[in-house]
Computed example of a mutant assay.
Amino acid sequence: MSKSVQVHAPATVANLVCGFDVLGMALHRPDDVMTLTLKEEPGITIEHTDIYQLPTEPEKNVAGAALLAMLEELDHPPGFHLVTDKRIKPGSGLGSSAASSAGAVVAANELLGKPFSNEDLVRFAMNGEKVASGVKHADNIAPAIYGGITLIRSIFPLDIVQLSGPPLFVTVVHPQIEVRTADARQILRKEVQLKSAIKQWGNIAGLVAGLLKQDYALIGRSLEDVIIEPVRSILIPGFDDVKSQSREAGALGGGISGSGPSIFMLSEKESTANAVEQLMQDVYTKLGIDFKTYVTSISYEGVRVSPVTVHQP
């Protein structure tokens, strides 16, 4: 059994516009790189090689909290040393906390000989999301661990459905501003009108059906959010311009990635995705806001275990 393992934990897009807290997908890039090493002495130690100065106390760190939840279910828990190179910026809306939480438990499960199922790993990793946002949710965690697109039918009990879909290209712009998940949740309405809920249910069902039927037109028609996006989009400068211009350029549709500020657009063709990237860059250049853009696709592998064993120094 290896004593060290390296994993690449993917960025994820939660909600997929209409599926608040129930839909998510994993991306090929960006990703975090994490190295986990078994220790003879108990306890968890955490080291960061990035610039974000995240907590190193396990109970205050999302990856540490996920590992602590896993260790509670082991009769003879080992110790771990975790080294994280975060390449998914915290507060980006691209599942940064989920990548850390999911990457840590997948790596630990690998080192322990895979005693836990993917569903178990999601359950452990949700403890990291609670540290990050105050709420246990799985719409980023599930696709990070399972790969592809996932539907969270239920949290308690946990019920995760993997969805197939047609080839899709994903264009992401990350304006270099921060929207905290906890803050983005706080501004949401606590009650929803029935007519809005009915429209939202139809869009969620239409999106799932469109993915399964590989019906690009149905996917595009269903990428509409009448509940969350109208409230959260006010936190993101340039959102309306990016969305309208992307559709005009041929994108199927898209919206806020997670709680933002990143915006994602889905396209049937790579050439369209590249055109969408250019217009995203133009919008934020004119606004004078720094940004990063990605043209990528859906990762059906999720957290990827590196074939190279990294030894503890």
Rank of each mutant, 00 (worst) to 15 (best):
S222W: 08
N203H: 14
P157C: 12
L279Y: 01
V173D: 03
Y284K: 00
D85R: 08
Q245F: 02
D21K: 09
L212R: 11
S246Q: 02
S196K: 15
K39M: 02
S297T: 15
I263V: 14
I228G: 06
T309E: 11
V208E: 10
P77Q: 06
S97V: 13
A107H: 01
A251W: 01
V276H: 01
G255Q: 10
N15G: 06
D139K: 10
T45I: 00
V161K: 07
L71W: 00
V62M: 13
G254T: 02
S4Y: 00
I145W: 01
P30L: 05
D85C: 09
I289Q: 06
V242S: 03
G79K: 03
N127F: 12
A104Y: 08
S222R: 05
A182I: 15
R153W: 02
G220E: 11
L36F: 00
G255L: 09
V192Q: 01
L38K: 04
A26F: 05
L71A: 00
I289V: 14
E277D: 13
K136V: 04
P90W: 12
A107T: 03
A209T: 15
G288M: 04
R304S: 15
D75E: 14
G258M: 09
G202D: 02
G258Y: 05
P115T: 03
S246P: 07
Y216P: 00
L279S: 00
P90F: 14
S233K: 15
T296P: 03
K292Y: 05
L27G: 01
R247Q: 11
N127I: 05
I204L: 13
L235S: 03
E248I: 11
S164Q: 10
L111T: 04
S222C: 12
A273C: 07
V135Y: 13
K243C: 04
G147F: 10
G91Y: 10
A108N: 04
L71G: 00
E178T: 15
E47S: 07
T84D: 09
A108D: 04
D139S: 11
L287H: 02
G148M: 11
P175M: 11
A69E: 03
A209Q: 14
I177L: 12
Q53F: 14
L67W: 01
D31K: 07
K213E: 15
E301S: 14
L54D: 08
H81I: 01
V5Y: 01
S267I: 05
A108Y: 03
K86F: 07
L158H: 09
S306M: 02
E47Y: 06
Q162T: 14
